[in-house]
């Protein structure tokens, strides 16, 4: 029989500190089901009123990029400075731009 005496699955916790703000990664909890995961996240990471919103997602569902891939993954974006607003020259005195 498979081992049932485990610490449950690992879930990543994301907190929204204020309404309208993006959710930020806070850490992880163990839990055995979805309800427990969100409650454990609440009981662990928002004990000091840290948040107005919470997400949990199973850690194994997260797709990540490793260092070995970093080069071809991120470098191509480094020379596309035209995506950033500071790339453009503006006449002196222009407002609301």
């Amino acid at each position: 029989m498979e081992n049932q005496d485990t610490q449950g699955e690992l879930w990543e916790v994301f907190i929204q500190s204020k309404a309208g703000q993006p959710f930020k990664h806070a850490g992880a909890v163990h839990a055995y089901d979805r309800e427990m995961a969100i409650e454990n996240a609440r009981d662990t990471y928002t004990r000091r009123g840290e948040g107005t919103g919470l997400w949990v997602v199973k850690s194994k569902e997260i797709v990540a990029v490793s260092q070995n891939e970093e080069g071809y993954f991120f470098d191509p974006a480094n020379d596309k400075v035209y995506r950033h607003p500071t790339f453009y020259e503006m006449p002196e005195g222009v407002k609301n731009m």
């Binding site: 610490q7 449950g8 909890v29 163990h30 839990a31 427990m36 409650e39 454990n40 009981d43 662990t44 004990r47």
Partner: peptide
């Protein structure tokens, strides 16, 4: 029975 439950119980 596990750490998370301990914290919840204390809350």
């Amino acid at each position: 029975p596990f750490l998370e439950e301990d914290l919840a119980n204390t809350n």
